[in-house]
Design a protein around this nucleic acid. Structure first.
Length: 305
RNA sequence: CGCGGGGUAGAGCAGUUGGCAGCUCGCCAGGCCCAUAACCUGGAGGUCGUGGGUUCAAGUCCCACCCCCGCAA
């Protein structure tokens, strides 16, 4: 007999694990909980979370509670008699009384090696900080954010040219591969959770676009990591001629520029910017407000002045 | 109708108060050179997003529409 799951998710990270669980006969997703539809994009059209259509395609009931704290949500979730809740990139805190509903508790798949990088931007934080490895953690949720005891960890090395998007995809795959067996073992009682070492905990915040504004007074290597880490979300940018210029790709350069820190200089077909430690970063791909993404040589083609 | 920028040569851009459509790169041909992605000379390539309107004359002014993008989510 298969385990009855209610699956909580919303972000992109939640898609793949859900597909895997759907195709695994050991589990039955009896309902999906996701965020409400929101007006999105340039024309403010209403858009559904990614997993909503996936659920509807399979004929699975979808709930989009405005507040998980509400009595309505509590009563609905209680009535469904699930064995366990599985939460992946859901975006709302799970209230204690909801955690108490399923007899086997609430299991979370998280994109870092807990207790390192508790919070919403764990993938970006790992790259931006220069960590050598990242990974996924499957844990049992308790009342505090990413604080509960751990069932399983899977390590994934961070590569020298990794972007947030690249690492994100790998972690998503790894998490999806590992989740079913770990979940099954846990539900059968084969593995038991072990407490996190809370002294080692680090935290990362939810990122907004404004966080992608580059502070050129920082060291070049740090900025280079930030550019990779924040690609594609929230992206990095700087002001140029009163316009917003997205920095899509950059690398450390051996060339020098005599312009002040943070000012763009063009030498030998390279776009150079001096950083706070006097080292120079070469921008290799960028996008100007209103324009399409450009390799640096194309930007230089039209550059005047 | 959430706010805003933009569609001009293959690419990226300029085009002033309407008055012969330009720049950098690329492409083609020739030259220089031991040689070259470097340099020199010449050349091809545009119904200026689409449809109307104003005017002797519209890339430029007016109206409508299509498409791309930044903010915001």
């Amino acid at each position: 007999m298969s385990h009855r799951i209610i699956y909580f998710g919303a972000g992109e990270f939640s898609v793949k694990p859900m597909q895997i669980l759907l195709d695994d006969s050991r589990f039955e997703i009896i309902a999906v909980v996701t965020q409400p539809d929101k007006p999105v994009g340039r024309h403010q059209k209403m858009e559904s979370p990614l997993i909503k259509s996936l659920a509807e395609k399979r004929g699975i009931e979808v709930f989009q509670f405005e507040k998980l704290k509400s009595d309505e949500a509590y009563q609905k979730l209680s009535s469904l008699t699930a064995d366990v809740f599985v939460v992946v990139s859901y975006g709302q805190i799970i209230p204690q009384r909801v955690i108490n509903i399923p007899k086997m508790g609430v299991i979370n798949l998280h994109g870092s090696l807990l207790p390192r990088w508790r919070g919403a931007s764990c993938v970006q934080a790992a790259i931006a900080t220069g960590d050598e490895e990242s990974g996924v953690t499957i844990m049992k949720i308790d009342a505090l954010m990413d604080h509960g005891p751990i069932l399983h960890k899977e390590v994934e090395p961070i590569r020298a040219n990794d972007t947030g998007g690249m690492l994100f995809r790998r972690l998503s795959s790894i998490g999806s591969e590992v989740l079913p067996d770990v979940l099954d073992d846990y539900l059968k009682g084969t593995i038991s959770p072990t407490e996190q070492n809370h002294d080692l905990a680090t935290y990362c915040k939810i990122l907004k676009r404004e966080d992608g504004k580059i502070d050129w007074s920082k060291p070049a290597e740090e900025i280079e990591r930030l550019i990779r880490a924040y690609d594609p979300w929230p992206g990095t940018w700087t002001e140029w001629n009163g316009k917003r210029m997205k920095i899509l790709s950059a690398c450390l350069s051996a060339l020098n520029t005599h312009k002040p820190v943070g000012m763009i200089d063009i030498i030998d077909n390279a776009i150079l910017i001096k950083c706070g430690d006097q080292k120079v970063l070469e921008i290799t791909k960028l996008q100007l407000e209103g324009g399409k993404p450009l390799e640096s040589i194309y930007f230089i083609s039209g550059y005047r002045g």
